[in-house]
Amino acid sequence: MTPAPGARRPRRVEVARVVPVEASVAFAWVADLRTHPRWIVATRLEGSAARGPEVGDRCTMASGPGARRDPRSALGRLVVTDRMVVEQVERPSTAAARVGRTRLRKLGPVLLGDAGFDVVPMDAGRSRVVWWEEAYLAGPLPRAVTDPLVALALGAFMRVSLSRLSRRLAGRGR
């Protein structure tokens, strides 16, 4: 997302992890939003996605301590709703040493900006997943105040989630 002239560029938060699977498998897990609730901490997909990622697909994720609870309960209301649209999908190739990329635009109401995953082929049994976010709170507080807090929360959330993904993928062969 290109910021408006004079606007401050969102702070980039990036977390990477080597996972024990070939790049096409890792890409299938990080690009397909239907798999996210299986490895991203305290997250649910609202609605349904009929297929894997295609440019133009829209989705809503709910994340937070109450994301997996009944939304009518007090804890169930403690979630951040994240509406997104897929803007780029490039599948990886280990044979061609081609990096896989997916990029999403965050549409609010809480977070705006861009996010994505890059999957770097390493060899037939490993790849490097890079999860990046250039997200910021939609308001009403100034970004100079909220950006450091958003970056801290996103970084922790992303590290824990990528660790869960790596463990899940390591267990696939068992």
Rank of each mutant, 00 (worst) to 15 (best):
S161T: 06
A153Q: 07
R143F: 00
L104Q: 09
T60E: 13
L137G: 13
L45F: 04
P5C: 05
S48M: 01
R9E: 15
L104S: 08
R77K: 13
A124Y: 03
D32L: 06
W132D: 02
A95W: 01
G6Y: 02
T35V: 02
L169H: 09
A138K: 12
R77D: 02
T94W: 13
R34M: 02
L154Q: 09
A49C: 12
R167N: 12
S93E: 10
A115V: 14
V99A: 03
R164P: 03
D118Y: 02
W131T: 01
A49P: 03
S24A: 12
S48N: 00
V86S: 10
V21M: 05
G171E: 14
V129G: 06
P142V: 06
T43S: 15
P121V: 07
R98G: 00
R58M: 10
G173P: 04
A151N: 11
V85G: 02
D32K: 02
V89N: 07
G56N: 03
P140A: 12
M1L: 07
P140W: 10
S48F: 01
G76C: 02
H36C: 10
T146L: 04
T43R: 05
G116R: 04
A97C: 12
V18S: 08
E87C: 08
G139L: 03
V119D: 06
R69H: 11
P5G: 10
R34Q: 09
S161E: 01
A74C: 03
R77H: 11
A96D: 15
R72Y: 04
A23D: 04
L45N: 10
A95C: 05
R8L: 08
G76H: 04
M61F: 13
H36K: 10
G171S: 14
R105E: 13
V21Y: 09
A151W: 11
V130Q: 06
P92I: 03
D70A: 06
A42M: 10
R91C: 09
M158I: 13
A156L: 13
P37G: 02
T2D: 15
G52R: 05
V120G: 07
V150F: 08
D123Q: 06
R72E: 15
V25H: 05
E134R: 12
M84S: 14
T43I: 04
L149I: 15
R17K: 14
G66P: 07
G56Q: 04
V21T: 08
S93V: 10
P65S: 07
R126Y: 06
R98S: 09
C59P: 00
T2M: 14
G139F: 05
S93H: 13
W39N: 01
V160T: 14
P140E: 01
C59M: 13
R167E: 14
G116S: 08
A49G: 11
A135I: 00
R34F: 03
